[in-house]
Design a protein around this nucleic acid. Structure first.
Lengths: 250, 250
DNA sequence: GCCGATTTGTCCGTATGTATC
DNA sequence: CGATACATACGGACAAATCGG
């Protein structure tokens, strides 16, 4: 899949990113000043700064007032990260890019009961699809997950759609893009289902990702709990602002 | 600690956030249009949009072109998240806000060898402080961590500083703020040190957070590996853009 | 189905403030 | 102190999506 940048600031962002990755600007180098880049890209200051800001948010550069913009991207760091885990296996991108083989273990229509309501925040009585699926690649199982989808949003779901891609069905058929996902990562002792389906490889616990997804118009329509294979799980973030992790303290 | 917003857009951001949290604008409501908010806050469109963008990045709202800006923040979802883990225990904020009791298990000055170089990306031969520390609250141990700090940046470190807060020393004494941290989260089988210090509570594996921190001028000066208590570990993010998680596939 | 009003998205130009050297 | 660099803020123009009449 080729990424097409439609906006001017995205074009500039992609171009600068390419230069950094090609090490035209290396780790700890300064990139050219705003003034020079404005001339080069023939754009306004706002547009250029927007591109720089995005590079910063993605961990490629760091702006320093009065000095310039410095490259943080470090090819050798990137290599050690890639050694630890192949980016081909991005969970963020999983929905639309990676070809998981998906087996549907259970497919049902239920109404939200009190217990499910308290963990999902769906109102009691909401009609939802309840699905259990197994995700695998090359006959190795990586994820066992339970999905709850609001029937009001994800209309006329079938097993064969659930075996393909519900995300694709949502965006391409129902024309309902996913806007935001809030995500919680915890670790839990493996249950019988985990033992049955996942190669635990000596671990007695698994990473658990809880997802709350929102449609473009702000409705929380999905609640999903995924149990991951523990030995190959990696979570990476290069952000400095938002992600917050903490521990239970009860 | 009281947060003081210096900039106009931060003042607007904080005010709108407060209104959302007070449920003046509730989940799925539209907030007033740009035009109205510009009048209310007596600001330019750019300034207002900057505040809105930040609210979006933090997961509070979602903008929809042609329609408006919709509230995603859901008090009841927030409550279920808080039930799972107290935000008082934020790892992001850990460095400066939370009072961990810190015991120094080991304090040494070493030069980076080949093995350390390959996992940290410090150049071979770099002089670093090598520190092992145990973090606890109320006599319960939560984190065992190994730090490597470049001596060129973190000058004249002592055990008593390491027992207090290296972050505070960096910012307040050396006047060297931390700009960015890249973070990797994995799950590994517990070693003898984990068994000795952490209450594993039946788990045979622990969450491992690997940190690469950069100074304001773009130097990677810290490499840290933290082993966390597994039963109470939580990682939360409400972002849709950057964080990427994936699994090893070798 | 079209049109006009409303709303957010993109882009431009300019002025002023602040930090660095 | 002056030159350079990024940060904040203002205002205006046009594009694109949505919605109601």
């Amino acid at each position: 899949m080729i990424f097409i940048a439609n906006n001017k600031y995205d074009v500039i962002y992609e171009d600068l990113k390419k230069r950094i990755k090609n090490e035209e600007y290396k780790y700890q180098d300064k990139i050219p000043s705003e003034t020079n880049l404005i001339l080069e890209y023939d754009c306004s200051r706002n547009t250029l700064r927007r591109a720089i800001k995005k590079l910063g948010a993605d961990g490629y550069v760091q702006s320093i007032r009065g000095k310039g913009v410095i490259v943080l991207y470090n090819a050798s760091l990137e290599n050690t990260l890639i050694k630890k885990g192949s980016p081909s296996f991005s969970q963020m991108a999983e929905r639309n890019k990676i070809k998981f083989k998906t087996s549907v273990l259970l497919f049902d229509e239920i109404k939200v009961n009190k217990k499910l309501a308290s963990e999902s925040t769906f109102p009691i009585g909401t009609p939802v699809y309840y699905i259990k699926r197994l995700r695998s690649i090359d006959d190795e199982n990586y994820i066992v997950e339970e999905n709850y989808f609001m029937q009001k949003v994800v209309k006329d779901l079938t097993i064969s759609i659930a075996e393909d891609s519900i995300y694709k069905y949502l965006t391409e058929v129902l024309n309902e893009p996913i806007a935001t996902t809030k995500r919680l990562l915890t670790f839990g002792l493996a249950n019988k289902q985990d033992e049955k389906y996942l190669d635990l490889n000596g671990y007695n616990a698994v990473p658990i990702v809880t997802n709350y997804s929102f449609t473009n118009d702000g409705t929380m329509f999905e609640y999903t709990v995924s149990h991951h294979r523990p030995d190959k799980f990696i979570f990476y973030d290069q952000n400095d602002a938002n992600p917050v992790s903490f521990m239970l303290d009860n």
